[in-house]
């Protein structure tokens, strides 16, 4: 089998192969470690069911932000009948005390940068 211009085409194929298999050789021999956000021990339920919180917590926080800042409305009536303070510092962070051990686990894993901390002070971490 004769290939014409092989000196140009074969390196071209190799370069394309390297580019397209980028995720494979980048992770070669590495073990994929899934994130392990540290969950609070004493409380079992969040303000909404876990599957909703896992996928859509940002929507909830955004709604809270608008209600508090624009409407001065501060109490969230959860589906389980309890009332919660719509607040990051006095609500969420009460249970999820550590940003590094909770938020950052998944957010770093997926390279999602929430803009909560543009205004809020991140909690001090004990090292």
């Amino acid at each position: 089998m004769k290939i014409y211009d092989g000196r140009k085409i074969i390196p071209g194929i190799l370069i394309a192969a390297v580019i397209f298999s980028f995720p494979f050789w980048l992770n070669f021999g590495k073990a994929a470690v899934p994130p392990k956000p540290k969950l609070p021990k004493e409380v079992k339920n969040c303000v909404e069911p876990t599957p909703f919180m896992r996928t859509s917590h940002m929507e909830l926080l955004n709604k809270w932000r608008n209600l508090v800042v624009r409407e001065n409305f501060r109490i969230f009536a959860a589906p389980d009948g309890k009332d919660y303070a719509m607040s990051l510092q006095n609500g969420c962070l009460k249970c999820h005390a550590s940003k590094a051990e909770f938020c950052d686990q998944c957010h770093k894993y997926l390279d999602v940068k929430p803009y909560c901390w543009d205004c809020h002070l991140a909690p001090k971490e004990n090292k």
């Binding site: 995720p23 494979f24 980048l26 992770n27 070669f28 590495k30 073990a31 994929a32 899934p34 994130p35 599957p51 896992r54 996928t55 859509s56 998944c106 894993y109 997926l110």
Partner: peptide
């Protein structure tokens, strides 16, 4: 929205050639 943490777990398992399918 779907649970993208699980999506990434699946994607990483595919590219490390140890495929596992997370539930849900």
């Amino acid at each position: 929205r779907v649970d993208i943490v699980k999506v990434k777990e699946l994607a990483m398992s595919l590219v490390t050639l140890k495929p596992t399918v997370p539930e849900g």
